[in-house]
Nucleic acid binder design. Structure first.
Length: 286
DNA sequence: ATCCAGGATAGCG
DNA sequence: CGCTATCATGGA
């Protein structure tokens, strides 16, 4: 049972709603003037009040860490290349933080993200939580934690298929069993270099370069990593490599590595957010 | 109805 | 190595 008293913490520059709705995390739900959800296994209420955040009293340090309030955004922006596409995205998406999500929760959720829209990933995430997570109370309502690898490892393929997972069900089940059995220790990966974490993550069925990059960025905090999804590939081809007739996936990765710098993950998240919400309008004007 | 979605992968030449 | 078909499901 959570303490529903709230504390104010300084949070200059963050945009809470953008951060929780930018396609990194999929379970936070609007509730009154704020959001309810869970930080790992603990229920939490979050509300923005100008340059401060109202946070469940017992989750102050967890929220600071989860919302990455320590990230030096001004310094990050100073490292960016100066080009009109990225500048526009920064202007539009400023306030987003790259969150620090629990590793298993992030891995399992992005395993379900393959070839899915953000809205549907959210639906699947909430369904899995409601059916197999822990019910938690906060702000007079219920939220659910993400089920542990052990819990999911005990399910059947049909149980997961019933959560609208489709062909992804087998991958989630296999990953849960690999972690629950101790075959892979996710927490132990945190001390390794990014390339070694990536190699380990790609050992899970259904984890290729893109999903591994998402977990590196959103859970392991490797801010130099740039996941390349269909939207980012579109931006890169149209705005950064328009003269090239043939662009292979490796070309995109090579370009990102040499162009966007040590905080490419932030650049990527701004471009994703901006492009995803304005691309169709721009195309219709032209 | 048709296309597409924060992809991965086996199978092919 | 590069290219293609295929994998379920639902939002637009």
């Amino acid at each position: 049972m959570s303490n529903d008293k709230l504390s104010r913490i300084a949070a200059k520059g963050i945009d809470l709603a953008k951060s929780l709705n930018s396609g990194q995390v999929f379970h936070w739900t609007q509730h009154g003037a704020g959001f309810v959800g869970a930080i790992d296994q603990k229920p939490c209420y979050l509300e923005q009040s100008g340059t401060q955040l109202l946070v469940s009293n017992d989750l102050i340090s967890e929220a600071r860490r989860y919302l990455a309030l320590d990230h030096g955004i001004d310094e990050i922006h100073r490292t960016f290349p100066d080009d009109p596409t990225l500048n526009a995205a920064v202007f539009y998406a400023a306030g987003i933080r790259i969150l620090r999500q629990p590793i298993w929760e992030c891995l399992a959720t992005f395993l379900t993200s393959a070839l899915k829209q953000v809205a549907h990933i959210r639906g699947i995430s909430l369904l899995i939580r409601e059916r197999y997570g822990r019910r938690l109370e906060v702000a007079g309502t219920s939220v659910f934690s993400y089920p542990s690898p052990e819990v999911l490892a005990g399910l059947t393929l049909d149980d997961l298929r019933a959560c609208r997972l489709g062909f992804r069900a087998a991958n989630v089940l296999a990953a849960a069993r690999m972690v629950a059995s101790g075959e892979i220790d996710l927490d132990a990966l945190a001390k390794l270099p990014s390339d070694e974490i990536r190699a380990a993550l790609r050992g899970f069925p259904g984890v290729g370069d893109k999903i591994a990059s998402c977990v590196l960025l959103f859970a392991f905090g490797r801010l130099e990593v740039m996941p390349i999804d269909v939207w980012i590939a579109r931006v890169l081809k149209e705005r950064y490599l328009p003269e090239k007739a043939k662009v292979r996936p490796t070309d995109l990765a090579d370009f990102c590595r040499q162009y966007f710098g040590p905080y490419a993950g932030y650049a990527q998240q701004y471009l994703f957010h901006h492009w995803r919400l304005t691309y169709r309008n721009e195309k219709m004007k032209t």
